[in-house]
Protein backbone atom coordinates (compact mmCIF):
# COMPACT_ATOMS: atom_id res chain seq x y z
CA UNK A 1 0.00 0.00 0.00
CA UNK A 2 2.70 2.38 1.14
CA UNK A 3 4.85 1.82 -1.95
CA UNK A 4 1.91 1.99 -4.32
CA UNK A 5 0.86 5.27 -2.73
CA UNK A 6 4.38 6.63 -3.20
CA UNK A 7 4.51 5.69 -6.86
CA UNK A 8 1.16 7.27 -7.61
CA UNK A 9 2.18 10.44 -5.86
CA UNK A 10 5.44 10.67 -7.84
CA UNK A 11 3.53 10.10 -11.03
CA UNK A 12 1.06 12.83 -10.03
CA UNK A 13 3.83 15.21 -9.13
CA UNK A 14 5.45 14.74 -12.53
CA UNK A 15 2.26 15.73 -14.34
CA UNK A 16 1.67 18.64 -12.03
CA UNK A 17 5.13 20.02 -12.80
CA UNK A 18 4.72 19.29 -16.49
CA UNK A 19 1.39 21.15 -16.46
CA UNK A 20 2.84 24.20 -14.73
CA UNK A 21 5.80 24.18 -17.09
CA UNK A 22 3.48 24.11 -20.08
CA UNK A 23 1.52 27.06 -18.68
CA UNK A 24 4.32 29.24 -17.41
CA UNK A 25 7.44 28.63 -19.55
CA UNK A 26 5.96 30.52 -22.54
CA UNK A 27 5.05 33.47 -20.30
CA UNK A 28 8.51 33.41 -18.75
CA UNK A 29 10.12 33.31 -22.20
CA UNK A 30 8.02 36.23 -23.27
CA UNK A 31 9.08 38.26 -20.25
CA UNK A 32 12.77 37.44 -20.75
CA UNK A 33 12.67 38.29 -24.44
CA UNK A 34 11.03 41.65 -23.77
CA UNK A 35 14.47 42.63 -22.43
CA UNK A 36 16.26 41.26 -25.48
CA UNK A 37 18.55 43.74 -27.24
CA UNK A 38 18.09 42.29 -30.71
CA UNK A 39 15.46 42.77 -33.36
CA UNK A 40 15.39 39.02 -33.90
CA UNK A 41 12.91 37.54 -31.51
CA UNK A 42 14.64 34.19 -31.37
CA UNK A 43 18.19 35.40 -30.79
CA UNK A 44 19.49 36.68 -27.45
CA UNK A 45 21.40 39.94 -28.01
CA UNK A 46 21.96 41.23 -24.50
CA UNK A 47 19.84 43.01 -21.90
CA UNK A 48 17.96 46.23 -22.63
CA UNK A 49 14.97 48.37 -21.60
CA UNK A 50 14.72 49.99 -25.01
CA UNK A 51 11.50 48.27 -26.10
CA UNK A 52 9.73 49.82 -23.16
CA UNK A 53 10.98 53.18 -24.31
CA UNK A 54 9.76 52.54 -27.84
CA UNK A 55 6.43 51.55 -26.39
CA UNK A 56 6.06 54.81 -24.46
CA UNK A 57 6.32 56.74 -27.69
CA UNK A 58 4.09 54.53 -29.78
CA UNK A 59 0.91 56.60 -30.10
CA UNK A 60 -1.07 53.70 -31.55
CA UNK A 61 -0.35 51.56 -28.49
CA UNK A 62 -1.09 54.34 -26.07
CA UNK A 63 -4.40 55.15 -27.78
CA UNK A 64 -5.40 51.51 -27.81
CA UNK A 65 -4.49 51.19 -24.14
CA UNK A 66 -6.53 54.28 -23.24
CA UNK A 67 -9.53 52.99 -25.17
CA UNK A 68 -9.25 49.56 -23.58
CA UNK A 69 -9.15 51.03 -20.09
CA UNK A 70 -12.06 53.39 -20.79
CA UNK A 71 -14.07 50.51 -22.19
CA UNK A 72 -13.25 48.17 -19.35
CA UNK A 73 -14.20 50.83 -16.82
CA UNK A 74 -17.53 51.75 -18.38
CA UNK A 75 -18.36 48.13 -19.17
CA UNK A 76 -17.67 47.00 -15.62
CA UNK A 77 -19.76 49.78 -14.15
CA UNK A 78 -22.75 49.33 -16.44
CA UNK A 79 -22.56 45.53 -16.19
CA UNK A 80 -22.65 45.63 -12.41
CA UNK A 81 -25.62 48.00 -12.31
CA UNK A 82 -27.63 46.03 -14.89
CA UNK A 83 -26.51 42.64 -13.55
CA UNK A 84 -27.56 43.68 -10.06
CA UNK A 85 -31.02 44.68 -11.26
CA UNK A 86 -31.36 41.36 -13.07
CA UNK A 87 -30.15 39.38 -10.07
CA UNK A 88 -32.63 41.20 -7.81
CA UNK A 89 -35.48 40.46 -10.16
CA UNK A 90 -34.57 36.78 -10.16
CA UNK A 91 -33.99 36.36 -6.43
CA UNK A 92 -36.57 38.67 -4.90
CA UNK A 93 -39.51 38.13 -7.23
CA UNK A 94 -40.43 34.49 -7.39
CA UNK A 95 -43.37 35.04 -9.68
CA UNK A 96 -43.67 37.45 -12.59
CA UNK A 97 -44.70 37.19 -16.20
CA UNK A 98 -41.92 35.71 -18.33
CA UNK A 99 -39.62 34.81 -15.43
CA UNK A 100 -38.27 31.63 -17.03
CA UNK A 101 -37.60 33.45 -20.29
CA UNK A 102 -35.93 36.29 -18.42
CA UNK A 103 -33.75 33.85 -16.51
CA UNK A 104 -32.60 32.19 -19.73
CA UNK A 105 -31.89 35.54 -21.37
CA UNK A 106 -29.95 36.82 -18.41
CA UNK A 107 -27.36 34.07 -18.66
CA UNK A 108 -27.53 33.31 -22.41
CA UNK A 109 -24.49 35.46 -23.29
CA UNK A 110 -22.37 33.12 -21.16
CA UNK A 111 -23.10 30.13 -23.38
CA UNK A 112 -23.68 31.68 -26.79
CA UNK A 113 -20.35 31.61 -28.71
CA UNK A 114 -18.88 35.08 -28.78
CA UNK A 115 -18.55 35.00 -32.55
CA UNK A 116 -22.33 34.76 -32.74
CA UNK A 117 -22.86 37.52 -30.21
CA UNK A 118 -20.41 39.75 -32.04
CA UNK A 119 -21.78 39.00 -35.48
CA UNK A 120 -25.42 39.43 -34.55
CA UNK A 121 -24.75 42.69 -32.74
CA UNK A 122 -22.78 43.90 -35.75
CA UNK A 123 -25.68 43.11 -38.09
CA UNK A 124 -28.08 44.80 -35.71
CA UNK A 125 -25.99 47.97 -35.45
CA UNK A 126 -25.45 48.11 -39.20
CA UNK A 127 -29.19 47.87 -39.81
CA UNK A 128 -29.89 50.42 -37.12
CA UNK A 129 -27.37 52.81 -38.61
CA UNK A 130 -28.91 52.44 -42.03
CA UNK A 131 -32.36 53.10 -40.61
CA UNK A 132 -31.70 56.04 -38.27
CA UNK A 133 -28.09 56.97 -38.95
CA UNK A 134 -26.90 55.87 -35.54
CA UNK A 135 -24.76 54.36 -34.04
CA UNK A 136 -21.41 54.89 -35.68
CA UNK A 137 -19.23 51.83 -35.04
CA UNK A 138 -16.72 52.65 -32.35
CA UNK A 139 -16.50 52.84 -28.61
CA UNK A 140 -20.27 52.85 -28.10
CA UNK A 141 -20.90 49.68 -30.08
CA UNK A 142 -18.00 47.86 -28.42
CA UNK A 143 -19.29 48.96 -25.03
CA UNK A 144 -22.77 47.65 -25.85
CA UNK A 145 -21.33 44.30 -26.89
CA UNK A 146 -19.11 44.00 -23.82
CA UNK A 147 -21.92 45.00 -21.51
CA UNK A 148 -24.28 42.37 -22.88
CA UNK A 149 -21.72 39.71 -21.94
CA UNK A 150 -20.44 41.39 -18.76
CA UNK A 151 -23.94 41.85 -17.42
CA UNK A 152 -24.45 38.09 -17.51
CA UNK A 153 -21.24 37.49 -15.54
CA UNK A 154 -22.20 40.14 -13.01
CA UNK A 155 -25.73 38.77 -12.64
CA UNK A 156 -24.43 35.28 -11.85
CA UNK A 157 -21.97 36.52 -9.23
CA UNK A 158 -24.47 38.86 -7.54
CA UNK A 159 -27.31 36.37 -7.71
CA UNK A 160 -25.36 33.75 -5.81
CA UNK A 161 -24.52 36.28 -3.10
CA UNK A 162 -28.15 37.40 -2.81
CA UNK A 163 -29.28 33.79 -2.51
CA UNK A 164 -27.00 33.08 0.43
CA UNK A 165 -27.88 36.32 2.22
CA UNK A 166 -30.19 35.86 5.22
CA UNK A 167 -33.51 37.36 4.16
CA UNK A 168 -34.37 38.19 7.73
CA UNK A 169 -31.65 40.89 7.75
CA UNK A 170 -33.74 42.97 5.39
CA UNK A 171 -36.90 42.18 7.31
CA UNK A 172 -35.24 43.19 10.55
CA UNK A 173 -34.25 46.50 8.99
CA UNK A 174 -37.84 47.09 7.92
CA UNK A 175 -39.05 46.05 11.33
CA UNK A 176 -36.77 48.62 12.93
CA UNK A 177 -38.25 51.41 10.83
CA UNK A 178 -36.50 51.41 7.44
CA UNK A 179 -38.44 52.41 4.39
CA UNK A 180 -37.77 50.03 1.46
CA UNK A 181 -35.08 52.21 -0.18
CA UNK A 182 -33.36 52.65 3.19
CA UNK A 183 -33.26 48.87 3.57
CA UNK A 184 -31.46 48.72 0.26
CA UNK A 185 -28.71 51.23 0.90
CA UNK A 186 -28.27 50.64 4.63
CA UNK A 187 -28.35 46.83 4.67
CA UNK A 188 -28.47 45.14 1.28
CA UNK A 189 -25.79 47.21 -0.42
CA UNK A 190 -23.15 46.76 2.32
CA UNK A 191 -24.02 43.04 2.47
CA UNK A 192 -23.47 42.46 -1.25
CA UNK A 193 -20.68 45.02 -1.57
CA UNK A 194 -17.97 42.41 -1.89
CA UNK A 195 -19.90 40.58 -4.59
CA UNK A 196 -20.38 43.86 -6.46
CA UNK A 197 -16.62 44.47 -6.27
CA UNK A 198 -15.85 40.96 -7.52
CA UNK A 199 -18.35 41.33 -10.33
CA UNK A 200 -16.82 44.68 -11.25
CA UNK A 201 -13.30 43.26 -11.38
CA UNK A 202 -14.44 40.22 -13.29
CA UNK A 203 -16.26 42.21 -15.97
CA UNK A 204 -13.37 44.68 -16.10
CA UNK A 205 -11.01 41.84 -16.98
CA UNK A 206 -13.44 40.22 -19.39
CA UNK A 207 -13.79 43.51 -21.24
CA UNK A 208 -10.06 44.29 -21.12
CA UNK A 209 -8.98 41.14 -22.92
CA UNK A 210 -11.89 40.59 -25.24
CA UNK A 211 -10.88 40.19 -28.87
CA UNK A 212 -13.66 38.38 -30.68
CA UNK A 213 -16.68 40.60 -30.05
CA UNK A 214 -14.48 43.69 -30.16
CA UNK A 215 -13.14 42.78 -33.59
CA UNK A 216 -16.69 42.72 -34.94
CA UNK A 217 -17.86 45.88 -33.25
CA UNK A 218 -14.87 48.21 -33.54
CA UNK A 219 -14.72 50.79 -36.26
CA UNK A 220 -11.87 52.73 -37.82
CA UNK A 221 -9.77 54.41 -35.20
CA UNK A 222 -11.21 52.43 -32.33
CA UNK A 223 -8.72 49.62 -31.79
CA UNK A 224 -8.38 48.11 -28.35
CA UNK A 225 -5.09 46.85 -26.99
CA UNK A 226 -5.71 43.10 -27.44
CA UNK A 227 -6.93 43.64 -31.00
CA UNK A 228 -3.82 45.74 -31.71
CA UNK A 229 -1.52 43.11 -30.25
CA UNK A 230 -3.19 40.46 -32.34
CA UNK A 231 -2.92 42.45 -35.56
CA UNK A 232 0.72 43.29 -34.89
CA UNK A 233 1.55 39.70 -34.01
CA UNK A 234 0.09 38.69 -37.35
CA UNK A 235 2.66 40.92 -39.06
CA UNK A 236 5.45 39.09 -37.30
CA UNK A 237 6.71 38.76 -33.75
CA UNK A 238 8.18 41.92 -32.39
CA UNK A 239 9.86 42.76 -29.07
CA UNK A 240 7.45 45.66 -28.39
CA UNK A 241 4.63 43.18 -28.19
CA UNK A 242 6.65 41.25 -25.62
CA UNK A 243 7.04 44.47 -23.67
CA UNK A 244 3.28 45.20 -23.72
CA UNK A 245 2.56 41.66 -22.65
CA UNK A 246 5.12 41.81 -19.83
CA UNK A 247 3.56 44.96 -18.44
CA UNK A 248 0.14 43.34 -18.61
CA UNK A 249 1.34 40.22 -16.83
CA UNK A 250 3.04 42.31 -14.14
CA UNK A 251 -0.07 44.39 -13.51
CA UNK A 252 -2.33 41.35 -13.35
CA UNK A 253 0.06 39.42 -11.10
CA UNK A 254 0.40 42.29 -8.65
CA UNK A 255 -3.36 42.81 -8.65
CA UNK A 256 -4.15 39.16 -8.03
CA UNK A 257 -1.53 38.79 -5.31
CA UNK A 258 -2.64 41.93 -3.50
CA UNK A 259 -6.24 40.76 -3.69
CA UNK A 260 -5.54 37.29 -2.33
CA UNK A 261 -3.30 38.63 0.39
CA UNK A 262 -6.01 41.07 1.50
CA UNK A 263 -8.65 38.35 1.53
CA UNK A 264 -6.37 35.97 3.42
CA UNK A 265 -5.69 38.62 6.07
CA UNK A 266 -9.39 39.43 6.42
CA UNK A 267 -10.22 35.78 6.87
CA UNK A 268 -7.48 35.29 9.44
CA UNK A 269 -8.53 38.35 11.42
CA UNK A 270 -12.14 37.20 11.40
CA UNK A 271 -11.23 33.73 12.62
CA UNK A 272 -9.08 35.19 15.40
CA UNK A 273 -11.83 37.54 16.52
CA UNK A 274 -14.34 34.74 16.54
CA UNK A 275 -12.06 32.56 18.62
CA UNK A 276 -11.53 35.46 21.02
CA UNK A 277 -15.29 35.95 21.38
CA UNK A 278 -15.76 32.43 22.62
CA UNK A 279 -12.68 32.61 24.82
CA UNK A 280 -13.91 35.56 26.87
CA UNK A 281 -17.42 34.18 26.91
Amino acid sequence: MEAAGGRVSNFGRFWLIAGYAFLYIPILTLIIYSFNDSKMVTLWGGFTFKWYGVLAEDKEVLDALALSLKLAFTTATSSVVLGMLGAFAMVRYQKFFGRTMFSAHLTAPLVVPEVITGLSLLLFFVMLQRAIGWPERGMFTIWAGHTSVGMAYAAVVIQSRLLEMDKSLEEAAQDLGCKPFQVFYLITLPMIGQALASAWLLTFTVSLDDVVATAFLSGPGSTTLPVLILSRAKLGLNPTINAIATITVAVVAVGVMAGSLWMYKQEKRRAAEQAAAYRDG
Binding site: S168, E171, Q174, D175, L176, G177, C178, P190, M191
Partner: peptide, 28 residues
Protein backbone atom coordinates in the same frame (compact mmCIF):
# COMPACT_ATOMS: atom_id res chain seq x y z
CA UNK B 1 -43.80 46.78 9.01
CA UNK B 2 -41.72 49.94 9.42
CA UNK B 3 -44.72 51.83 10.76
CA UNK B 4 -46.02 49.22 13.19
CA UNK B 5 -45.23 49.87 16.85
CA UNK B 6 -43.99 46.32 17.28
CA UNK B 7 -40.55 44.80 17.04
CA UNK B 8 -39.58 41.29 16.21
CA UNK B 9 -36.61 39.21 17.29
CA UNK B 10 -35.79 36.78 14.52
CA UNK B 11 -34.84 33.17 15.06
CA UNK B 12 -31.47 33.84 13.41
CA UNK B 13 -31.31 37.14 15.41
CA UNK B 14 -30.67 38.96 12.10
CA UNK B 15 -27.98 41.17 13.62
CA UNK B 16 -26.45 43.41 10.98
CA UNK B 17 -22.98 41.91 10.48
CA UNK B 18 -21.38 45.12 9.23
CA UNK B 19 -22.46 47.14 12.26
CA UNK B 20 -21.14 47.04 15.83
CA UNK B 21 -23.27 46.05 18.79
CA UNK B 22 -23.77 49.73 19.60
CA UNK B 23 -24.79 50.57 16.03
CA UNK B 24 -27.13 47.60 15.86
CA UNK B 25 -29.00 48.77 18.95
CA UNK B 26 -29.03 52.38 17.74
CA UNK B 27 -30.24 51.39 14.27
CA UNK B 28 -33.97 51.63 14.97
Amino acid sequence: PHQRPMNMMFQSYALFPHLTVWENIAFG
